[in-house]
Design a protein around this nucleic acid. Sequence first.
DNA 1: GCGGCTTGGTGCACTGACTGCAGTTAATAC
DNA 2: GTATTAACTGCAGTCAGTGCACCAAGCCGC
Lengths: 196, 196
Amino acid sequence: MNQRELQRRETRRTLAEHALRLFSMNGFDETTVEEIVAAAGVSQRTFFLHFATKSAAAFPDHEERVRDFIDRLGDGQSVGNPLLHLCEVLSSGLDTDSPTRRTRYQLLAQVSALRDEDARTDRDYEEVVAAFLVQAWGESTEARLRAHAIANAALGVCRASLIGWGEDGIDPREVCFEILHRMIGSPFDAPLHSLQ
Amino acid sequence: MNQRELQRRETRRTLAEHALRLFSMNGFDETTVEEIVAAAGVSQRTFFLHFATKSAAAFPDHEERVRDFIDRLGDGQSVGNPLLHLCEVLSSGLDTDSPTRRTRYQLLAQVSALRDEDARTDRDYEEVVAAFLVQAWGESTEARLRAHAIANAALGVCRASLIGWGEDGIDPREVCFEILHRMIGSPFDAPLHSLQ
DNA sequence: GCGGCTTGGTGCACTGACTGCAGTTAATAC
DNA sequence: GTATTAACTGCAGTCAGTGCACCAAGCCGC
């Protein structure tokens, strides 16, 4: 890791930190990008060099997490039961360690612009999950559609669990795993009628 | 229906019509609100009197459809199997008659701003579905969380089915019902462990 | 160590979505 | 017939986000 990269990460981290702080302190709509960059001591232009939108600053580690998720998911052909594997990987990925993450999901429960952003980030996961399932099932228009539908459903459960964590403090992992497992772990043991 | 109301609806309809036409003709980002209002022959201010955002103009009948959905869903205590009922109401609600709706979902497959808007509209349905399930199951923090998780999942399946319709022309109703039924129709026959 | 290249950050002017407010006009209520 | 209401308008303003030319400091080959 060279010095440039270090500096870049530091700037990004600082921006995200101040953004989250100001969002939870003063509210999302009440916080302007100008205020964030003033607090972080960089120019407005730099903010948009790091984050595509104001709300994206609330999810600074998104790309990294998606990469990590892809790694943990592995490829669809080398796992025994793909849907069961998916349940496990998805629910175990909901880490509840960091207070920053908690803050973020508390905010999410209140701020609709951030729920929008959250739904947007889920679309990246959707692509990954769908690709994984298609890999497991074999490529076909129907398989793709089913994969997207199931991916959407599974991520919806995770999202609700995380927002529930923010609102009520319920550990998202258990509830997420149980529901996912019931929904997609066993119902699809029997092959889908037109699928293979 | 008085004349004012008629006029109002007409303006709204015209705006939505021109918006959708311009979006699919020239692209969403390439279309400005100024162009839409010029085509519709009203002022810019009027546009935002009818639609909260530019993308909302692509879903002009949203509120009406939500009201209709609430009616068809009924209340959670008076139906035999709430989850099965939900599957039926959700999948039968995906009407594929109108060419306008088809256009909209074709657009949706391509334009991320509209997928954002679509996800946003789904949140209204999420509230309705969650309320219905909580009504059926009885109020508790766990029930609420489960209800939201299942609502999210179910709507995710519908969304994916509709986008699949736009992209590949697959009739969303069958696939949606089958997946929904497998996912939430039977797995929850056995009571959820901490749910009475 | 030095010159050339690269790259993270800056300044500025601009676009376009959206808002607040103070009108106007025409339908409706009384 | 008059008072009220509600759809619509005009305008000035805010703020997110972009394109572009630019600086400065790190990096790389010599």
